[in-house]
Computed example of a mutant assay.
Amino acid sequence: MTTPGFVEHLARNRYFDRNFNTEAVKVLPGEYFVTTTDVVIVTVLGSCVSACIRDRDKGIGGMNHFMLADGSNSHDIASASARYGGYAMEVLINHLLKLGARRDALEAKVFGGGRVMSVLTASNVGDRNAQFVLDYLATERIPVAAQDLLDIYPRKIYYFPKTGKVRVKKLVRMHNDTVVKREREYSARLVEAPVAGDVELF
């Protein structure tokens, strides 16, 4: 049994997207998805961030959806809080490499880190998430081809790994609290889960 909140797991929510006329996969907080096929990967972000990473030559790509554990204001990539983000990034990149992606051909597009949860705004969780993902990618020398970070609105992300194309929809008039509820529950799991094991940065 894996530890909730710390160990990322593969998203399993598949559906057919009528807008794009293609198979789609929804990624929730604490999940990721990788593919070699022509699908769209979809997620909705509040304070969390997603890294969309692909081999620009082979079209092998994927997306994660994560948040740093609360309780640390450090942007240090080796901090206890950042290890949650580091693990999320490592799992995604390692899976891409296993599918045949080449390390020197990877490119990233990053999104999220909004100030949409009042309970997390005081600790600047969105800001820390955004800075972490940029610092991590810089350390790993994976170029960031595009970014849409911070702001005050949730975002819906549509990522097409085959082409690298991303569509971002700002949810300015969102009236339900689904995003906030999911992220609050995810944040609680992170706080409760112990940080164990080593994270390999490569």
Results as ranks from 00 to 15, higher is better:
residue 1 M to F: 12
residue 1 M to R: 10
residue 4 P to Q: 05
residue 4 P to G: 05
residue 6 F to G: 00
residue 7 V to R: 00
residue 7 V to M: 06
residue 10 L to S: 07
residue 11 A to V: 12
residue 13 N to W: 11
residue 22 T to L: 15
residue 23 E to W: 09
residue 25 V to A: 02
residue 31 E to G: 05
residue 32 Y to E: 01
residue 34 V to I: 11
residue 34 V to T: 14
residue 34 V to K: 04
residue 35 T to E: 02
residue 42 V to T: 12
residue 44 V to D: 12
residue 45 L to S: 04
residue 45 L to Q: 05
residue 47 S to A: 14
residue 49 V to G: 01
residue 49 V to L: 01
residue 52 C to L: 07
residue 53 I to Y: 05
residue 55 D to L: 13
residue 57 D to I: 13
residue 58 K to D: 04
residue 58 K to C: 02
residue 59 G to P: 09
residue 62 G to F: 09
residue 64 N to P: 06
residue 64 N to A: 00
residue 65 H to V: 12
residue 67 M to H: 07
residue 67 M to Y: 05
residue 69 A to P: 07
residue 70 D to R: 08
residue 70 D to T: 14
residue 71 G to W: 10
residue 71 G to N: 06
residue 72 S to L: 01
residue 74 S to T: 10
residue 75 H to E: 06
residue 78 A to Y: 13
residue 84 Y to S: 05
residue 85 G to P: 06
residue 87 Y to K: 11
residue 87 Y to R: 12
residue 88 A to H: 01
residue 88 A to W: 06
residue 90 E to P: 00
residue 91 V to P: 07
residue 92 L to Q: 04
residue 95 H to K: 15
residue 96 L to A: 12
residue 97 L to V: 02
residue 98 K to Q: 15
residue 98 K to V: 12
residue 98 K to E: 15
residue 103 R to D: 07
residue 103 R to G: 03
residue 110 V to E: 00
residue 110 V to C: 08
residue 110 V to A: 01
residue 112 G to L: 11
residue 113 G to W: 10
residue 113 G to R: 04
residue 117 M to G: 03
residue 120 L to W: 13
residue 121 T to E: 15
residue 122 A to P: 14
residue 125 V to I: 15
residue 129 N to Q: 03
residue 130 A to N: 10
residue 135 D to C: 01
residue 139 T to C: 04
residue 143 P to W: 05
residue 147 Q to N: 08
residue 148 D to N: 06
residue 149 L to T: 09
residue 150 L to C: 03
residue 150 L to Q: 02
residue 151 D to T: 08
residue 156 K to I: 06
residue 158 Y to A: 03
residue 159 Y to K: 03
residue 160 F to K: 04
residue 160 F to I: 08
residue 162 K to M: 04
residue 164 G to F: 04
residue 165 K to C: 09
residue 172 V to S: 01
residue 174 M to I: 03
residue 175 H to F: 10
residue 175 H to L: 14
residue 177 D to Y: 03
residue 178 T to R: 13
residue 180 V to F: 06
residue 181 K to P: 01
residue 183 E to Q: 07
residue 186 Y to Q: 07
residue 186 Y to S: 08
residue 188 A to E: 15
residue 189 R to W: 09
residue 192 E to K: 12
residue 193 A to F: 03
residue 195 V to R: 08
residue 195 V to Y: 07
residue 195 V to I: 13
residue 195 V to W: 10
residue 197 G to C: 02
residue 197 G to S: 01
residue 198 D to V: 15
residue 199 V to T: 10
